[in-house]
Amino acid sequence: MEKILQIKDLHVSFSTYGGEVKAVRGVSFDLHKGETLAIVGESGCGKSVTSQSIMRLIPEPPGKIHGGEIIFKNNDLIKLKEQEMRKIRGANISMIFQDPMTALNPTITIGEQIMEGIVQHEKLTRTQAKRVALAMLKLVGIPNPELRLKQYPHQFSGGMRQRIVIAMALVCRPDVLIADEPTTALDVTIQAQILELFKDIQKKTGVSIILITHDLGVVAQVADRIAVMYAGRIVELGTRREIFYQPQHPYTKGLLQSVPRLDIEMEELIPIPGTPPDLFSPPPGCAFAARCPFAMEVCKRVYPFKTQKSNKHHVDCWLQDERAQKLASS
């Protein structure tokens, strides 16, 4: 499959009064055309910082992208000037933020907010922009779009506001859509509708989606591949089936044991003990070692090499190293 976006060895940190927070520490992954890649992990692991770095929305200062590449259409987005990035944001790469109410301007009609991106990026007249906005509202399932264009955000329910934010992100037909916790504030019924909407839109438009979430239930429904993130690094990446049925990293296994599942029998949920490490001074080895029941001395001292389990599945864990495997089998 064609690679539409490539993240290579991305490093992002934030300067604070207490020191430098190393939020993203060498993240690498690819996004293919027409696929949904989910990035999962605990709060504070660097998921949102990674997505905002792709959009170049990290405030500088205090944030800073220290190294790496973000390749989109043969261009390194990190090296582009702000004026060049403005042409890409919304038009080629769009983002849905966590809370739709804070993403919408309460003083402007939703029609004006949707048409703003069209007028700016596609240079259409207001009449043409209105026609596109109406079509987009129909696509995301908003009834009576003619009437709804004239209304304000407070006149919509939470689920409807989320649909409007999705319409705003898709109105310029982007190649990549980044959805940062798009269902967090919604109840289960509306959440299911939004996930179905994502799948339907992807079929109709072919957009590639990066889904940022901590909810493995969301991941199970829509993701083609899953990247498991911990303490600023991607520790395991594979297809949905590989991550759910053949997890290799102890952290991935811990996540799966701590949430209810209907596909396997579970006597009780097992929480992951301890807390994530302090990213002011991250450990030199595996960041999960202090919480891992299988940790060895090398885990604490040296970060593990990447072990390839299949064409699409790799893991950063010393337990998967061939030398550890030989010891385990002897």
Results as ranks from 00 to 15, higher is better:
1 M>C: 04
3 K>Y: 07
9 D>S: 04
15 S>A: 11
15 S>H: 07
16 T>K: 01
22 K>E: 13
26 G>W: 08
29 F>R: 02
35 E>C: 01
38 A>V: 14
41 G>N: 13
44 G>F: 00
44 G>N: 12
46 G>K: 06
47 K>D: 14
52 Q>Y: 10
56 R>Y: 12
56 R>S: 04
58 I>V: 13
59 P>D: 10
61 P>A: 00
62 P>I: 12
62 P>A: 03
66 H>S: 13
67 G>C: 03
68 G>S: 05
69 E>W: 02
69 E>V: 03
71 I>Q: 04
73 K>T: 15
76 D>T: 06
78 I>K: 00
80 L>H: 03
81 K>R: 12
84 E>L: 00
88 I>E: 09
92 N>M: 08
97 F>W: 02
114 I>W: 05
119 V>A: 00
124 L>Q: 10
130 K>Q: 14
136 M>D: 05
137 L>C: 06
142 I>R: 01
145 P>T: 06
149 L>C: 03
150 K>E: 15
151 Q>W: 00
151 Q>P: 02
154 H>A: 08
156 F>Q: 04
158 G>W: 01
164 I>Y: 00
165 V>H: 01
166 I>R: 00
168 M>S: 05
176 V>A: 10
188 V>P: 02
190 I>F: 11
191 Q>E: 11
194 I>M: 01
207 V>N: 01
210 I>S: 06
214 H>G: 06
223 A>V: 12
229 M>L: 12
235 V>A: 06
239 T>N: 09
240 R>Q: 15
240 R>E: 15
242 E>I: 06
243 I>A: 04
244 F>P: 08
250 P>K: 02
250 P>D: 06
253 K>F: 10
257 Q>A: 14
258 S>G: 11
260 P>E: 11
263 D>C: 03
265 E>K: 02
265 E>M: 02
266 M>E: 13
267 E>S: 10
268 E>W: 07
269 L>E: 13
273 P>Q: 06
278 D>V: 05
280 F>M: 07
285 G>S: 10
286 C>S: 13
291 R>A: 12
293 P>R: 02
294 F>E: 14
297 E>H: 05
298 V>E: 15
302 V>R: 04
303 Y>D: 07
306 K>R: 15
307 T>P: 00
313 H>M: 11
316 D>K: 05
317 C>E: 14
320 Q>N: 14
323 R>Q: 14
324 A>I: 09
329 S>N: 13
330 S>E: 13
